[in-house]
């Protein structure tokens, strides 16, 4: 069926989202959503700062990192000015909306409704003194790394 790829189809993926910036969160979300669109089973495991994307109080406030990112083509000294990250985030969100890429909370809901499962990392939850109540309702559970591998059995694992 594919023109360029192998005829062997990917059936299952587990995607780890470990970064809490906008550019850290979206690739994993897009890949998980894209997997479901192709009929591929998808699990997303949120760990460390990636958990911001599923935290009720934080998920609508994910921002682009404007400091220490050479691809922004902005000197770090400029990037650290107040409001710079919010400005860059606004510009990027506008462009993404044109492509129908939803804001994080809507995207998380869509991916969940598409049948992907969302998991939070036990170690991070303990480290930051969080509970399941800190997460949006789409999150299945808080699981440890062993359980993560169990869930991922027979599939590909992608770290972002």
């Amino acid at each position: 069926m594919s023109e360029n790829g192998s005829t062997e189809k990917i059936k299952k993926v587990s995607i780890i989202i470990s970064k809490g910036s906008l550019e850290g969160v979206y690739p994993g979300l897009i890949m998980a959503n894209g997997a479901r669109m192709e009929g591929i089973e998808a699990n997303i495991f949120f760990t460390f700062f990636g958990m911001e994307a599923i935290m009720k109080k934080r998920m609508a406030k994910i921002k682009v990192a404007t400091v220490g990112n050479p691809a922004m083509h902005m000197p770090s000294l400029v990037g650290m000015l107040p409001g710079m990250s919010a400005f860059a985030t606004k510009m990027m969100s506008k462009e993404m909306d044109k492509l129908d890429i939803p804001p994080v909370p809507e995207f998380v809901e869509m991916i969940h409704d598409a049948g992907a499962k969302l998991w939070a990392c036990r170690a991070t939850v303990d480290m930051f003194h969080l509970t399941i109540d800190d997460f949006c309702e789409q999150v299945e559970d808080v699981i440890n790394v062993g359980k993560f591998y169990e869930i991922s059995g027979g599939g590909e694992i992608i770290f972002t």
Binding site: R36, M37, G39, D100, P102, E109, M110, D113, A114
Partner: peptide, 26 residues
């Protein structure tokens, strides 16, 4: 897009996936 079908077409994503299983957009 699936989002367009949800927001403008009024068909929730969950329903879309059960109406057209394994690859609803395509």
């Amino acid at each position: 897009t699936i989002r367009g079908i949800k927001n403008s077409g009024g068909v929730p994503t969950k329903d879309l996936y059960s109406l057209f299983p394994n690859g609803p957009a395509k």
